[in-house]
């Protein structure tokens, strides 16, 4: 019997992000006033304090900012995937994303490796971003 992954509870502020993933689009918030892109989703622009938001689609291109290979089953749902690599990806848009890597050899990873974000439906109704070395 497999254990389900923790399912996110989208908020009013984050629902478009999660809905976007279901359509296999990586959506980022952009300030409706000054244009600053921010992530993860939240109500206010820290630069100009505007509450106006629009959503833009990410290029899904980025670089590896850091990573860790997880060997201990802290998240029971991923016990069978150990060791899995978690990537911190810096997107072209200037914000970062933490996600699992696909087909990654931890020993071969280096800072600033080019990566792209792809999507996988990991369980019914839960689509997550994954990083793939380009």
């Amino acid at each position: 019997m497999s254990v389900a992954r923790p399912v996110p509870e989208p908020t009013i502020d984050s629902k478009p992000y999660w809905d976007g993933l279901k359509e296999r689009r990586l959506l980022l918030q952009q300030c409706g006033n000054c244009g600053l892109v921010r992530h993860y989703p939240r109500p206010m622009c820290a630069a100009c304090h505007s509450l106006e938001v629009r959503w833009i689609e990410s290029s899904r291109r980025g670089r590896l900012h850091s990573w860790t290979a997880v060997h201990h089953p802290f998240v029971p749902a991923l016990r069978d995937e150990i060791p899995y690599v978690m990537a911190t990806v810096e997107l072209e848009e200037g914000v970062r994303l933490q996600c699992q890597m696909l087909d990654a050899e931890a020993a071969a990873l280096r800072l600033d490796l080019p990566v792209e974000i792809v999507f996988r439906e990991v369980q019914d109704g839960l689509v997550l971003p994954f990083a793939l070395v380009v």
């Binding site: 802290f74 749902a77 995937e81 978690m86 800072l111 990991v122």
Partner: peptide, 24 residues
């Protein structure tokens, strides 16, 4: 909300990328 579904919650996992970048 944003990182645990992908497999990260424990401090060891969250701090490891800080240490990895410091090493690199």
């Amino acid at each position: 909300e944003f990182e645990t579904p992908s497999g990260a919650i424990a401090p060891a996992q969250l701090y490891a990328p800080m240490a990895r970048r410091h090493m690199e």
